[in-house]
Nucleic acid binder design. Sequence first.
DNA 1: CTGAAAGCGCTTACAG
DNA 2: CTGAAAGCGCTTACAG
Lengths: 329, 329
Amino acid sequence: MITINEIAQRANVSRTTVSRVINHSGYVSEEVKRRVLKVIEETGYVPSENAKSLRTKKTKVIGVILPKISTETSSRLVKGLDEIFAKEGYQILLANTNLDPEKEIEYLRLLKSRHVDGIILSATNINSPLVEEIYQLKIPFVTVGQHIPGLANVIFDDYQASKDMVHLLINKGYKNIAFIGVDEEDRSVGYLRKLGFLDAMKEKHLPVEESWVQKGIFDVDSGYECMKSIMDTSKRKPTAVLAVTDRLAIGALQYIKETGMSIPDDIAVAGMGASELSRFISPPLTTIEFSMKDAGREAAGLLLEQINGENDHEIIRKIKYRLLERSSI
Amino acid sequence: MITINEIAQRANVSRTTVSRVINHSGYVSEEVKRRVLKVIEETGYVPSENAKSLRTKKTKVIGVILPKISTETSSRLVKGLDEIFAKEGYQILLANTNLDPEKEIEYLRLLKSRHVDGIILSATNINSPLVEEIYQLKIPFVTVGQHIPGLANVIFDDYQASKDMVHLLINKGYKNIAFIGVDEEDRSVGYLRKLGFLDAMKEKHLPVEESWVQKGIFDVDSGYECMKSIMDTSKRKPTAVLAVTDRLAIGALQYIKETGMSIPDDIAVAGMGASELSRFISPPLTTIEFSMKDAGREAAGLLLEQINGENDHEIIRKIKYRLLERSSI
DNA sequence: CTGAAAGCGCTTACAG
DNA sequence: CTGAAAGCGCTTACAG
């Protein structure tokens, strides 16, 4: 490992001077500069970011905490983040919690110990020890997808999006609408989307049978099972089903197809998330596009502002969503 | 920012001692240990990894260079990597080249300057300046997906996989097989898969019309265009088409469906990659599963071995693949 | 069992 | 325009 001292020696200058030419700071005569640059070139010297950040207190690294690493949601989010951060010379340090709440806290500390310049958290379940930890962090911080009071938030209007979808279904003439949700611990996807569904139905005075409302987990098989369960246990069969994620919707769709019923004539299906699958499945799935890439860009922007000392109060930035009406309804 | 000095002061010991209790190294009396631990607890002190690595020369960070950040391939690879690395306390620093060859070299240097303990490169195009740079790096290094002589490689047998798929098609009775490839600069996906196709056809003495062989890029639309071009320009129409990625195959499939032809009766379609789409598209797509997750695990393992001073010679680890025969052929 | 001191590779006032 | 010195927050021989 070649160091600044070695460059200084070889170029016959002090390491102060070498530092100055590397960082384009302070005055250095043209001749000396050339000499130093030449030695750097020859040796292939690369300054140690570690040593540098020990002094400057800046690492140019952003910690990104993800609940799952290989989902479409996460990878689009990271793409959006990286788009902005890379431009400003920041790199992303990944922390994958695998949905383990303890890991969230653990990684928060780890990222702090690595002196990242900021943290982006894409959480599913927000619990109070986590929030406590975040408040004590004193590091630029932005959360995506879930609201945490007092911090910078980039979120979607899950409640309204869900309502909008129900309205769309109702406008198309569907009245008996079933619902496949997820655990309400997940406030955005589990609680708010369900609430939007229930409120929309209530406002239109449409009854919701208990058996029409099922709770699954985040995968296709679970959607399949939920749909089966809806059909098996309901006296009055629904004519439409809304699932809080596309994967759940696609599972439901598979079950319906298997039983020989037709979509949307016998049952309409709608999802949320605008996964790539939704476009290519047959029939194409009606869904809601939440642009995670935009969310990522927005979150990166907010974090950068905090790093530059602006906007250290609560911010709630809602990302627009779009209803994608396709032939499954 | 609270430091080891402050802990030492508060606990009335030297920072040497604090260091010892943090790292469980050397003797510390039970009583002193308790005192130090208590202060650490109270203050929420987290040692600076930066300062630590400046001394120890270890960062516990692995640099991962990806050609594209939000593809299924990349995210599965990262998942496999993270699975192994996280267990050993390593974190991943992401570097996304967006297919820009200059960025590969730039990031190689950047990662070096950050003193990552090792680098994983998932490259598409290997050029000689890049290879030169890698050889000079002197950092534990593993490449995934493309072969680089003299280094540790985790690859798939693209040539044989392609051949196997052609044999499968031939065994099913297809003789006029078209091919949608990508630029041969990409040695694995572009060159080797095409060569496998051509050799398999040649060995069975099956002619390949020039118009049957098209070159696209990595997306669905491109597959659509290639298929259109095959059908428009061929006097003798093919009865099957093999595409080097699932997305290309799905584009082809869309075009075929649009023209009212039936799959596989009029034309059979096969892809490669076992994307999630391939399972849910209709008809389900015959494809080849290259497990990127396994590749990731394997690559992480090899890198860890190098970090521990083993296996610094060339290694070629081939990851198994599986033919997934589905109703598109 | 404990601590003083040197050193990791940088940057940054300060002085000249 | 240039350099000597202090210091960032740790670890690690060395000495006691």
